[in-house]
Design a protein around this nucleic acid. Structure first.
Length: 886
DNA sequence: CAAATCACG
DNA sequence: ACGTACGTGATTTGC
């Protein structure tokens, strides 16, 4: 091999026109926002474009030029320069610093200099690089830059077309081919034709066509002026003569400078280490999932990757147990899928992870024994997700040394999407680890794959990360005042939820099927009727097809609403249901389709071989501390409409049992009364007076026994509104009244409940100062939206600040009640078990001889779950199915 | 994979 | 002047 250094001929620089590409990206992509409400579409589009070009060009160097908000020589020459340009929309403006942040993190040079436009910087730089032997590629959305093309300098113009991005490429010859002029003559052409977007005047009456012809023939404006008498057509000749100075000035305005004084070195634009922690974190924050794929090389993973010792014999277990107990703290992961237990990964220091293989010489008894020994030794066992391993491990709410990392991280920031080992590692260990998907891809866990390197590495992280992160998490929980909440509420709740999942709820498959058949025959009738009214066949389930049918073909009123088309949502249709009978049919059709697909058919598919549905309760999903329910969602079984409510007849207790159902009455308003210490509202609850009637009486100034049903309905809506963080608009929409009336209601409401107003204002103020709000039990909800520059986002943040302490405290209360009830049932050795929690309601499958005891436990524990200045009222009912028990 | 719709609290 | 109620999850369309 020759010992000569590579000459610079092999260097290639990519010069990006920052604002122009950002602008293209902004208008090319639909609006996107991340969880903070930050608009991100332009940044994402920008990155997509430049990565596409980087992939194609493989440049060695790169930089991005931006304009600076400062007049340039062009403004001095011609004060109307760029005068007609519209200001950037706010959604785009806020993305300018964002893209700069991303580029900086990726070590990509940003060039901006007062007095120069990006074009001039690009022009100058392209010439310097060219002279230094670089290949040069300029990327811009702006055709003005075509004047910079030469045989060595390529100008690329990306276009966003129907999904994909295509790029037009121009060397000097391509410019010539397209416009019939050289890149330099292109400037003269622009001098003649002007440019509306930059407000360059040019010569009146001369457009692209004429300008092209003149320059093709005469090569330049100066030369054309010398032969002014020969210019054709006559109109152009006359105008050019008259506006000769303006043409010359326009040419100068349009000329990109090639001799700016730039105080930087080409070597500064070397591309290196674009994919690092910092850029990864920003991309993650912006929620650019597709970008994260580019961060495959994770240098840090090596640092944390421990030795993995696979244990295949019982005899080796003693050492493992002794080592772990001596350390006093362990990280553990149970390796299993729904049916099979493969083993466990366990570690007590960052150097070694033991993977105990229960598919080999290790007996499952021996494995259970060492876990039990470790547990009873008092060793802290740190686990990523305790609930997921409870089918194989007999931990209980009494084992206070078994700790859950996911739940700790959720309490510290409930807004994250997931609390997997890689999330925890990034956030609390500041180490980037490959995700589960990256490690094992599509490979499934089975007896063979489970001891493959990739799976072993995965298990190692799943055991190790909890061990390493737990101390930090506990410290932070203490620091934020949430340690008690964690230990006394969240951790025991894990076991309660697992108990409910394991028990499941019995559902009568035949009843669901019969119900479905009834629905289907009515759905068919409605379908035919709707098609007949419409006069043509179409898919009623498609709002995109339904909209035009209703508002164009049938010309019904109330059309147009969104950018994508007509809204056909129930509240829109509700308003025009008297105009045409098709509307009622559609509403009924929708209702029945929903009941059938989501409930009758949907639920049926979840019934297990034991005749019961074992859904999943999630403890780390909601922003407020509520539980959520999935696969299926058992917290949204129909209730409000009689027809839907009938589904509840299919939810039945096992033989010899009945259902006992208990729910709180207006917990959220009671919580509000307590938190705000409002004497008027507290008084109503203390004296057990109907709260909505009280509100109506106060707000409308009538005696409580003269409140009309309408007044009560309005008052009820206002009470709800208050809990949601009221707005006059929202209330007026809900009640179908004017905004003025709605805001009058609100004003009178605050007049009545003065302390509530004070309290809510106080929450918003607290949130603005601290960035979060707290529940009665110290649970935190961060509100990043309050820092947004966007009015709408900020208003949302304010509503959240008002709502979260209320919804969250209510969630805390029922969680406490729920776990007390569950523990009591077990303590008393009852056969009855908790099976569902629906936010303010608990359902217990109750042995017939335990009904009285269970009713008492429910009422007792629910009423006394929290110490408040207003009583908590609980309603109880029982029955042979869920329909009867409500 | 996102948007629209609608079920619940 | 802005454009909205708070918190969830499942299904269906259609790009």
């Amino acid at each position: 091999m020759e010992d000569t250094q590579m000459p610079d001929h092999n260097k290639k620089i990519l010069i990006i026109d920052g604002h122009s590409i950002l602008n293209r990206a902004f208008y090319g992509l639909p609006d996107l926002t991340n969880y903070e409400g930050l608009h991100t579409n332009a940044v994402l589009g920008f990155l997509n474009i430049i990565f596409k070009i980087i992939d194609e060009e493989q440049p060695t160097n790169m930089c991005v030029a931006f304009d600076v908000k400062q007049p340039t020589f062009r403004h001095l020459m011609y004060k109307e320069y760029k005068g007609t340009r519209k200001p950037m929309p706010d959604e785009l403006r806020e993305q300018v610093p964002l893209i700069k942040e991303v580029l900086t993190a990726m070590n990509i040079t940003i060039i901006e200099k007062g007095g120069y436009e990006a074009d001039d910087i690009i022009g100058t730089l392209s010439r310097i690089a060219d002279k230094d032997g670089y290949k040069v590629v300029i990327v811009s959305g702006d055709r003005d830059l075509l004047q910079l093309a030469t045989d060595n300098i390529l100008v690329r113009i990306p276009k966003t077309k129907a999904g994909g991005t295509t790029v037009e490429n121009y060397y000097a010859a391509d410019v010539q081919k397209l416009y019939g002029v050289t890149p330099v003559q292109f400037i003269d052409m622009k001098g003649l034709m002007g440019d509306t977007s930059d407000n360059i005047p040019g010569v009146p009456g001369i457009g692209e066509k004429t300008a092209g012809k003149i320059i093709q023939e005469w090569k330049s404006i100066d030369n054309a002026l010398e032969h002014i008498d020969e210019i054709k057509p006559p109109k152009a000749q006359k105008n050019l003569r008259e506006f000769a100075d303006q043409a010359k000035m326009s040419r100068e305005l349009a000329t990109i400078k090639l001799d700016c004084v730039l105080d930087f070195n080409l070597d500064d634009t070397d591309l290196f280490d674009m994919f690092n922690d910092k850029s990864y974190n920003i991309m993650k924050r912006l929620e650019f999932k597709s970008m994260l794929k580019r961060f495959d090389a994770k240098p840090d993973a090596q640092e944390l990757k421990p030795e993995i010792t696979v244990i295949n014999e019982n005899s080796a277990l003693d050492t493992v147990r002794d080592t772990v107990i001596a350390a006093g703290k362990a990280g553990m992961y149970v390796i299993s899928d729904s049916d099979i237990l493969y083993g466990i990964a366990i570690t007590c220091d960052a150097r070694t992870v033991y993977v105990i293989n229960s598919m080999s010489g290790v007996s499952s008894d021996a494995m259970s024994d060492i876990v039990r020994d470790i547990k009873t030794s008092g060793t802290s066992i740190c686990i990523g997700d305790i609930k997921s391993c409870l089918n194989d491990m007999d931990f209980s709410e009494c084992d206070t040394n078994v700790l859950d990392v996911g739940i700790a991280a959720y309490l510290l920031n409930p807004l994250e999407n997931s609390y997997n080992y890689d999330d925890i590692s990034k956030e609390y260990l500041e180490v980037m680890l490959p995700s589960e998907k990256e490690l094992t891809g599509k490979e499934e866990l089975n007896a063979f794959t489970f001891i493959s390197d990739n799976f072993l590495e995965l298990f190692a992280y799943k055991a190790l990360v909890p061990l390493l992160a737990m101390d930090t998490l506990i410290e932070k929980l203490k620091g934020t005042g949430m340690y008690d909440l964690y230990m006394n509420v969240e951790l025991p709740t894990v076991y309660t939820l697992h108990d409910m999942e394991k028990r499941g709820v019995r559902v009568d498959r035949t009843a669901l099927e019969e119900y479905s058949h009834k629905l289907e025959s009515r759905i068919k009738e409605l379908h035919d009727s709707i098609i007949e009214y419409a006069g043509k066949d179409f898919n009623i389930n498609s709002p995109k097809q339904l909209g035009p049918v209703l508002f164009e073909d049938m010309a019904l009123p109330g059309g147009k609403k969104t950018k994508t088309g007509y809204s056909t949502s129930a509240d829109v249709l509700e308003k025009i249901k008297n105009v045409h009978p098709i509307i009622n049919d559609i509403l009924e059709y929708r209702q029945l389709s929903k009941l059938n697909s989501t409930y009758a058919i949907g639920l049926g598919s979840f019934i297990s071989s034991d005749g019961r549905i074992h859904g999943t309760f999630n403890q780390t999903i909601t922003a407020t501390g509520r539980i959520s329910s999935t696969d299926p969602n058992l917290q949204n079984i129909p209730m409000r409409m009689e027809l839907g409510r009938l589904i509840r007849k299919a939810f039945i207790p096992q033989d010899g049992f009945v259902f006992v159902d208990a729910d709180y009455s207006q917990v959220e308003l009671r919580v509000l009364a307590h938190l705000s210490d409002d004497s008027v509202m507290k008084n109503a609850f203390q004296n057990n007076i109907d709260i909505h009637s009280t509100t109506a009486s106060e707000v409308f100034g009538v005696p409580i026994d003269e409140v009309t049903p309408l007044q009560r309905r309005h008052a009820k809506a206002v009470n709800f509104g208050i809990v949601y963080g009221i707005s006059a608009f929202g209330l007026s929409e809900d009640l179908g009244i004017s905004r003025k009336e709605a805001s009058d209601f609100i004003e009178k409401y605050y007049d009545t409940y003065k302390s509530i107003k004070t309290y809510l204002d106080g929450q918003v103020k607290f949130a603005k100062e601290n960035g979060y709000v707290k529940t009665m039990f110290g649970r935190i909800r961060p509100i990043p939206e309050l820092k947004s520059s966007n009015f709408m986002q900020r208003s949302f943040g304010e509503r959240v600040a008002m709502n979260s302490p209320i919804q969250g405290s209510a969630a805390d209360i029922i969680k406490i009640a729920m776990l007390h009830v569950n523990i009591k049932l077990k303590e008393l050795g009852l056969k009855s078990r908790l099976i569902l929690q629906i936010h303010d309601e608990l359902l217990i499958e109750t042995a017939k001889d335990e009904v009285d005891t269970v009713r008492k436990i429910l009422v007792d524990e629910m009423m006394h779950a929290a110490d408040m200045t207003v009583p908590l009222e609980v309603g109880v009912a029982s029955g042979n199915n869920w329909y009867e028990a409500k």
